[in-house]
Design a protein around this nucleic acid. Structure first.
Lengths: 336, 336
DNA sequence: TAAGCTTCGTAAACCGCTTTACCTGCCAGG
DNA sequence: CCTGGCAGGTAAAGCGGTTTACGAAGCTTA
């Protein structure tokens, strides 16, 4: 590999000159420029980014910490983060934490060691304080999707409360009066907010939230199944379920199918996220769409602002909307 | 941030000593070791990886070039590549090419600029030769999933031919005698091989492949739909379809549904890949499972071998298997 | 007692680039 | 004729490590 000095030697100038020319830090006469350009072409010179970074202290790379890059939601987010970062000339280091606090901390350390300029962090566990402590004197970090309470970082979230409100209202508008809700880990921002949206819709409609109608544990398919089974075991079962993630909703679908019930005839269902598979399941899932592309774009934008010394917005809320498919039906009072 | 010299100063030794100690290149008496350890702990020293890499020339990072990290298949692969690489102490740089040749080339260049030690490359376009040329004098690259013909790199593929054979045979065993096949871009290794497996099964069973029964274009949902429409427009329609990717299969499902046909009653269907959504669609898709985890593991293993100067296997074939779900039914001759 | 090993280290060059001075002509203006 | 400014550069000190080569004590051993 040719180095800057090789280029300089061929062009008959000093390495300094070549470096400054390449970084637009010097005005050179056309003849010199041409000699340098020719030397670069001739040697097929490509700057050694490692050396450049070491010397400037700027890595021109950001880190993306996700719970699991194998999950379609995070994968989509990662894809747009990557392409947005690339537009700004930044590379992206990705890491999956597998939802484990220790790995999360390790990942953040590693990111720092790899010398990234900033971090986009997606967590999906309620923080016990260790994350907050680790990030305490860190700026240059943008939190996406879920919160880490107690630190003054820039955040990019969606309108969880509104989404849940919309979902619940949609069910109410279809005549449902007894609606259960299934959610992720208590303590998580998105869970709290989605629950709040559900409760607001119920309250505004003058509907009661019965005991046993709120089931929180985690955003997994298997909990979707388990929660549904527990709902079906009640004496008075609801006529509709709001599953606050599409993974949960798929679990609900499976449990209902196992129980011989069909959606939406026997039970209406609304999900949350609009995962790629939401329109492929049977029936296609009515759900709340999160603007994935917009989230990724925003997170990168905020981080770039931080990196350029511009104050980033402390909190960005992205709008969600209801995607009506075929998992909700008009409520039919049980015949006789 | 504390540097090596800071540690050396605090410990009362030279930077050389600390460096060699940290890299197990020197035997030191316990007292000295303790002083260095104490200094490291006291200063919370973490080596600057950038400097280390510049000086050693080893990046301890690999590049992963995928067509699209947002696609669940590649995302899953990426997830296991990442965790496997991490086990070996390597970081992973990921890039998506969006199936564009120019971006692919750019990605490979960038990877090199970022100074990765090796590359795992997944392409999904037939190469026009430019990729082969670019990689010609490159070792330290392993090709996964699809081929780039004409270069002597290590490759990790699945048993495409066997998989397609299994899928077709499964349909034949259910009594189907007229089976169409839908596939990706002609020229792609996986497409050729899957087609070959289909043909072998048909030939062995003494079945004819009718004109218009082989439709190749790309591995997309929309082509799955289009191909199905074209199949349904024929005078004699098949009773079963082998869609050589699950994306295609979902498209087939949608087109059949639009046409008022139900699977498997009116048409049997087998997919390929066993994407996460395959068991969520309606009906759950009978398909050929690719061993995603195994592929990722293998690719990393081969690359690590290369990086350690051990010759890697020129070609690894991973086995696939049939996952029977509910999209295939016994053939029913049309009544009257 | 001198030669020869160990043991425990160190000096200094180097990786490839950036950046902060600073330098040398040459020309215009006073 | 002197001064100042500008065009067109360059030397050298980093960035934070690694690595090669060398060396001073202190102990054996012949």
């Amino acid at each position: 590999m040719a180095t800057l000095s090789d280029v300089a030697a061929v062009a008959g100038v000093s390495p300094t000159t070549v470096s400054r020319y390449l970084n637009n830090n010097i005005a050179l006469p056309a003849s010199t420029r041409e000699r340098i350009d020719a030397a670069i072409a001739q040697l097929d010179y490509r700057p050694n980014l490692l050396a450049k970074r070491l010397s400037t202290g700027r890595a021109e790379a950001i880190g993306l910490v996700t719970p699991d890059i194998g999950n379609p939601f995070f994968a989509q987010l990662a894809a747009v983060v990557e392409s947005e970062a690339e537009r700004h000339g930044y590379a992206v280091y990705m890491t999956s934490t597998h939802g484990d606090r220790a790995r999360e901390i390790e990942a953040i350390r590693r990111m720092r060691d790899r010398h990234v300029d900033g971090l986009i962090l997606m967590s999906n566990r309620p923080d016990d304080g260790s994350l907050a402590r680790l990030l305490a004197d860190d700026d240059k970090v943008v939190l996406m999707d879920e919160d880490v309470p107690g630190i003054g970082l820039s955040r990019v979230f969606v309108e969880n409360e509104v989404g849940a409100y919309l979902a619940t209202q949609h069910l109410i508008a279809a005549g449902h009066r007894h609606i259960a809700v299934i959610g992720g880990p208590p303590g998580l921002l998105s869970v709290r907010e989605r629950l709040a949206g559900y409760e607001r819709a119920m309250t505004e409609a003058g509907l009661a939230v019965h005991e046993g109608d709120v089931l929180l544990q985690d955003y997994s398919r298997s909990f979707g199944r388990a929660a549904t089974e527990s709902i079906l075991a009640q004496k008075r079962t609801p006529s509709a379920i709001f599953a606050s993630s599409d993974y949960l909703a798929v679990g609900v679908l499976q449990a209902l199918q196992n129980a011989g019930l069909s959606v939406p005839q026997d039970m209406s269902l609304v999900g949350f996220d609009d995962m790629p598979f939401a329109e492929m399941v049977n029936p296609p899932l009515t759900t709340i769409r999160q603007p994935v592309a917009e989230m990724g774009r925003m997170a990168v934008e905020q981080l770039m602002a931080l990196l350029n010394g511009i104050a980033a917005a402390p909190l960005t809320r992205l709008p969600v909307d209801l995607v009506v498919r075929r998992s909700v039906a008009q409520f039919q009072p049980r015949s006789i």
